[in-house]
């Protein structure tokens, strides 16, 4: 099926720029990737409140922290691998330990970075971010959810990590969608198995549910955009209903959404959980589509796996 896809990076840049019209307290930082992260939209509209620190991600995060110390609402962007990898300790020890109002909106998360290959594909960012106290972690799935998550972050005090896809994504939500930090979203009710996902893989999971439907399997599809703090109740209720859970994420199966779901269920309502993601290995070059298929994250591959589980 061919769908119209929209740039979620563009949605991010436009949203912060618009928020910046009203809220003069918003400042934005980038490390020489403003053309890719789309912070350039903000930079053009508000040049006095945009700071490019050059290719220096450690400096990026701690300069952001300093600006937050003066009461600014700080958005900081670079690729997810450099934001969460190179500057992890700056985020942990300065931004989060001091509980500063810094929003890390990192683009190019996951395998779908594509042709640049493994060095640029952040498969560990969710894991790295959600283990830090005070940090909120959000993985939006489309343009609408990205814009609303960014607005939520701007309006809410404290450190926040938002993972923004490199790829253009089709709309999942309509204009009536309301992002709720406390709530996972049941997009399709079902009784045979729960598919829990977020971000870029949400649309694949919705398509997968249709494939399963044809095979007589009634899957429930739940999007969990907020990986931390996670909506335990919705996860537990769904597990009680279906008794089988599959997590799907554009991330390593270690430490991300799958792990977060396992933590919830193993303590509160143990059922078998199958984690679908990147299996503790590095990625490689290829187109985003090819890579999703190669690593088993397309609707048909997910469906195959689920049919195996149900049998």
């Amino acid at each position: 099926m061919i769908r119209e896809c929209k740039s979620v990076r563009n949605a991010y840049g436009k949203t912060i720029s618009e928020l910046g019209n009203e809220n003069k307290n918003i400042v934005v930082l980038d490390a020489d990737l403003s053309c890719s992260t789309q912070t350039q939209i903000f930079a053009k509209a508000h040049p006095d409140r945009f700071f490019n620190v050059g290719i220096a991600e450690q400096d990026l995060m701690t300069t952001a922290a300093g600006l937050a110390c003066t009461g600014k609402t700080v958005f900081v962007s670079t690729f997810a691998i450099f934001a969460t990898g190179r500057a992890w300790e700056q985020i942990r020890n300065t931004i989060c330990y001091s509980n500063l109002n810094v929003k890390i909106a990192a683009t190019h998360g996951g395998i779908t970075v594509g042709e640049d290959g493994a060095s640029h594909q952040a498969l560990e960012d969710i894991s790295l971010m959600r283990s830090i106290p005070n940090m909120t972690v959000i993985v939006p799935a489309d343009e609408t959810e990205t814009a609303q998550a960014v607005k939520y972050a701007a309006d809410t005090f404290g450190p926040c990590y938002i993972r923004i896809a490199r790829t253009n994504l089709p709309d999942v939500y309509d204009k009536n969608y309301k992002f709720n930090i406390k709530k996972a979203i049941i997009l399709k009710e079902g009784s045979d198995i729960s598919i829990l996902t977020n971000g870029e893989t949400l649309v694949e999971c919705l398509d997968c549910a249709k494939i399963l439907e044809e095979k007589g399997i009634n899957a429930e599809v739940i999007s969990i955009p907020v990986v931390k703090p996670i909506d335990k109740e919705t996860i537990i209720q769904s597990a009680k209903k279906t008794g089988k859970v599959v997590t799907v994420e554009n991330h390593s199966i270690i430490g991300g959404l799958g792990s977060a779901v396992c933590e919830v269920l193993s303590e509160s309502y143990p059922v078998k959980v199958t984690r679908i993601g990147i299996n503790d290995e590095f990625g490689q070059s290829g187109s985003a589509k090819e890579l999703l298929a190669y690593y088993g994250l397309t609707s048909d591959k997910i469906a195959q796996k689920i049919i195996g589980i149900i049998k």
Binding site: V27, D48, R49, F51, Q58, D59, M61, T62, T63, A64, A65, G66, L67, A68, C69, T70, G71, K72, E89, Q90, N93, T94, Y97, S98, L100
Partner: peptide
């Protein structure tokens, strides 16, 4: 205490951020 410290190498960047913020204001 303006900001938590202890991990070396971070104070000067923090100072830059504060200096930028003060200049804006």
């Amino acid at each position: 205490i303006e900001v938590s410290t202890g991990s070396l190498g971070q104070g000067l960047s923090i100072a830059c951020g504060i200096a930028l913020g003060l200049r804006l204001d």
